[in-house]
Design a protein around this nucleic acid. Structure first.
Lengths: 335, 335
DNA sequence: CGGTAACATGTTATCGGTACCAAATGGCGC
DNA sequence: GCGCCATTTGGTACCGATAACATGTTACCG
């Protein structure tokens, strides 16, 4: 339980001022190289550990970038996080992660909590937020990035894509392959706004193409995954045959749907087509491979990292950056 | 770019001292309720945001718990993180997450970085660390939790299970069902030490039961997932037939193996048995369901949270806590 | 009405770095 | 030897909250 070793202690041991130690440990060129070396060595010997908290306090720069994700247990968001984390590693920024469980109210609470840590930027997933969240963020003069969406009223920078447009590609593809009776499987209303956008995209495109009304099959509150897809299908029972295509909110759901359809004796894609979203690993490994939408999850994270580096370096003065990273149809064997 | 609103400003506006504001905002009962209310309101009106950095600095308590995970993109670790995060939510602790990519050297770097943030506890995945990491942690008088393993020389508390023992259950099960020619599919040596423990567990138990030597099929450096499992199998080609059971390091790998086996025309489990590890969602949803080892990923996180709450509350004085959460065989349809 | 306990609020110093400015030292030209 | 500049180092105050202690205020007693 000995007292903490501080720069003062190191300074005394070396015989210089704390200021010189501070400079030396930050590799300030103005400190004589021999002195720097000596200081580093003594610091090491004494078991000195730099106190980032004190630095953050004094400089009023926390070295934090706050990030909110709907769920950490989602391969796509995890990839985005990795891209962001790796991309930001060089700049010495630490990520502060919070998970919203797909709820804007939870997001608000999180943002409130994260802001008390003085992050130097905040990255939000999606473009839907409570008014209070928007107010909180606007009040701060803080770089904000929204990702995974193209919000109509962005809070700042945007690195995303259009969910509706992506779904339109799928619906067009299905219609061209002769499918007409579509069902959409996703999370309950209002629990996953990005999912709702996808559903609306499906409905709109189907209407535009003159297909019958798309039926919404509720898989329960977000997050929905493999088992929820399977359950939604088994709940349908014989009614399953009234569809010739099931459009799913994500690949895991689609995989659950696929497995259950096969258990029920349906031929995929013979009897019914299935599509997913996100180009998760399971889509390309499963047999048959699942038709899906490829989104560049990792790239989104990397782009956010690049953007933030520019922002921190002052190279992003000319207003917010808005990047549509797009999405692409990935044809599998389920359609 | 107005200057930051501090407690001083709030104090001046209300006509009390900063100290009273500080107390009021922390809901100190000794502050008159009316005063407290007034202060909260004024703070709100002025757009005051509490500065946790300053608090952390002054109190020398960061409010952080550092966590290292091998990978964030892994459903099991993500679940553990969620359990930990949810469990710790009430205590107001913030998680500081770092990902080691299954490398102890990366872990060391991470630990070094995380320690500069003065965490109040650190949670490590696994029981393998570099000597330097061990030294760093021992030098600090910091609660340490190792999880997902039962280390022979724990650094502090342990919430885990025996990987070798879990694999022994699988091998016993396979042997009892008449399988003899086992292959083990996992990551390359030294890139995933927990995976190596699993492999050694398989080899040991197979030897004990008098089975032929287990062959190691290298799926590449960690992390390995679905596609690596599939690739390992397709690389085997016709040699695949020399096995009657494939033991995989994880369920995603097993799923890749399963899919590829079926693409190659093998009957599972008729021609070959397949087992996974972790009881991931894919194991129970896939058709056929995958035989696996159930580990209570979420519970591990929750238990760590409970343990830490006890530690913070001072209710864990009598030495380190070591909990074996165990594991169980989950019979699927692939064996 | 003095005394005391219970309650409510204020004062001062401090956590460990670092911005800002001052100053010591050494080298060089004239 | 002097002036000047470059290089290197030091002194002081401060970031915003709060622990520890001191003080003021009210209520109620005999």
């Amino acid at each position: 339980m000995t007292a903490r070793v501080t720069m003062r202690d190191v300074a005394r041991a070396v015989g210089v001022s704390p200021m010189t130690v501070s400079r030396a440990l930050r590799d300030d060129e103005t400190v004589n190289e021999k002195t720097r070396h000596k200081i580093r060595q003594v610091a090491n010997d004494l078991g000195y550990v730099y106190d980032t908290t004190a630095q953050a306090f004094r400089t009023q720069k926390s070295g934090f970038v706050a990030v909110t994700l709907p769920s950490i247990n989602n391969a796509n968001f995890a990839e985005t996080f990795r891209g962001l984390s790796d991309g930001l590693g060089a700049s010495g920024m630490q990520l502060l992660l919070g998970s919203t469980n797909y709820r804007v109210e939870k997001e608000e609470e999180l943002v409130r909590q994260l802001l008390t840590r003085n992050p130097e930027a905040i990255v939000l997933t999606g473009g839907h937020h409570t008014d209070e969240t928007r107010a909180l963020l606007r009040a701060r003069n803080l770089p904000v990035v929204e990702m995974w969406d193209l919000p109509t009223e962005p809070l700042g920078h945007v690195i995303g894509f259009s969910n509706a447009e992506a779904m339109a590609k799928l619906v067009t593809h299905l219609a061209e392959s002769g499918r007409r009776r579509l069902g959409y499987i996703g999370a309950s209303d209002l629990t996953d706004l990005r999912g709702a956008e996808r559903r609306d995209g499906v409905i709109a495109k189907a209407a535009e193409l003159g297909l019958p009304e798309v039926e919404f099959l509720d898989a329960g509150p977000a997050p929905v995954s493999m088992r929820h897809g399977a359950q939604a299908v088994s709940a349908l029972g014989a009614n399953l045959r009234s569809f010739d295509a099931l459009v799913c909110v994500s690949d895991p759901v689609a995989f659950g749907v696929l497995s259950e359809c096969r258990r029920m004796g349906l031929d995929v894609p013979g009897d019914i087509a299935i599509t997913g979203f996100g180009n998760f690993e399971v889509a390309s490994v499963s047999d048959p491979r699942i038709t899906t939408i490829g989104v560049t999850a990792r790239e989104i994270g990397e782009q956010v990292a690049l953007l933030l580096e520019d922002v921190f370096a002052g190279n992003q003065r000319d207003g917010p950056r808005v990047v549509d990273v797009g999405s692409r149809l990935v044809r599998g064997e389920t359609s």
